[in-house]
Design a protein around this nucleic acid. Sequence first.
DNA 1: GCACAGCGGATTGTCAACAATATTGTAGGC
DNA 2: GCCTACAATATTGTTGACAATCCGCTGTGC
Lengths: 231, 231
Amino acid sequence: MEDAAAALARKGPPAVEIADWIRRQISASRFVPGQRLVEVDIIRQTGGSRFKVREALQRLAAEGLIDIEEFRGATVRGASMDEVRQLYLARAAVEGICAADFTRRSSAAERRILADMTIEMEQCPQDHAPERFGRLNARWHAFIMDVSGNLVLADMVKRLNTPVHRLLFGTFYRGDRLNEAIADHRRILHAITAGDVDAADAAMRQHILNGYRFLTGLDHAIHEEDEVNPV
Amino acid sequence: MEDAAAALARKGPPAVEIADWIRRQISASRFVPGQRLVEVDIIRQTGGSRFKVREALQRLAAEGLIDIEEFRGATVRGASMDEVRQLYLARAAVEGICAADFTRRSSAAERRILADMTIEMEQCPQDHAPERFGRLNARWHAFIMDVSGNLVLADMVKRLNTPVHRLLFGTFYRGDRLNEAIADHRRILHAITAGDVDAADAAMRQHILNGYRFLTGLDHAIHEEDEVNPV
DNA sequence: GCACAGCGGATTGTCAACAATATTGTAGGC
DNA sequence: GCCTACAATATTGTTGACAATCCGCTGTGC
């Protein structure tokens, strides 16, 4: 009897995996806004059938990550500066709620894990390890999402993050961003530990908006409707 | 030379329109949770080709509105009571932000329009017109979304609403819901008119959460993980 | 009457060929 | 040299046929 792996090798990856693969390429800026996604190339690189590739593209279009034009195919969508603002505002609202829920629902053990992660991240500036900070930061936020128990919101944040993922990572390499983020995290953790639901919400919101402020403060020359290429 | 309508008649509706059509059926409960969406039926009813119907289904699956199982096709997803809670919490967060943005960005004329709509809705209880109230209510919320200028959030709310649309409408037929909603709207309008951004945010959040509380208060027998059929 | 294997219809998944369209390259005129 | 019209190529859209799978039905043996 064939096992699942053999079946997969015979049939090729399902549409969901192809979609994930493309999403990762976009997150990592291997696919950049404006770039055309040619079906044949994706077929070659993923081993999926043309049909499944097209299904994957449809899914990504539904998420707003790519545009599909008739007879012109799929292109990676870029976010205007105004849309980035909207994305951050949305994230602020949603992650605020999650922080509040985390405060309500987390066990002592889970709060302990969060505290440990927070402490570990505070080592990064003196180690000059912004990349590690970025990875830990993603895990830190994801952990709060998970424990908050709201899959709808978690999914939403994941979706909101993809287009700005690279932008987000970029900020960690510059200036005082790391220390500011660490201070924010500490404030959030404090509110959570104290069981102060509203304070956790407010601190998380502020944290996200700080990230946005830092991002826009960097390139003050960018105008409202400029396309942002997350390089 | 052919115009667009003729071309459409010849080629059939695009995938996006088919997806919209299915979405409307679900919103109106003509398709109910658990129901199988057979490709051939949709082809017959929309006139789309099989391929386009399948693309449309992929999009809806990406939105989480339907499930697609291998060789079993698409079924309408039902929301568990817990998921409904999550949806409402998300809506509260997002619409709160939009109310705040409306307060910041709206012109005097736009605030006037909102006030007129609010007054019109206050007639509904004495006219015994809950259906009309529901329609106006949808417009009222949509108007705030629009003017707030955040397309990302507007899209998100639209997506959040589809699975619970019928539930929402149902509440307007019962008890004191209309008067409560009217009082909420009045409070929100008051905060907006006063230019109080935070108060508008808080009042809108409270309004959505009141809706949720009303919904859950109705059927206290429903347990956490029960499927909710929005009939 | 009931359990179960097998069969047939219904439905979805896959593929390959072909049609429609956009893009690119090229030649010619000005 | 540059612009335009046209041909060649690349890419996507569409269709139909066929394979794989599931589901309900039926008939058989007990």
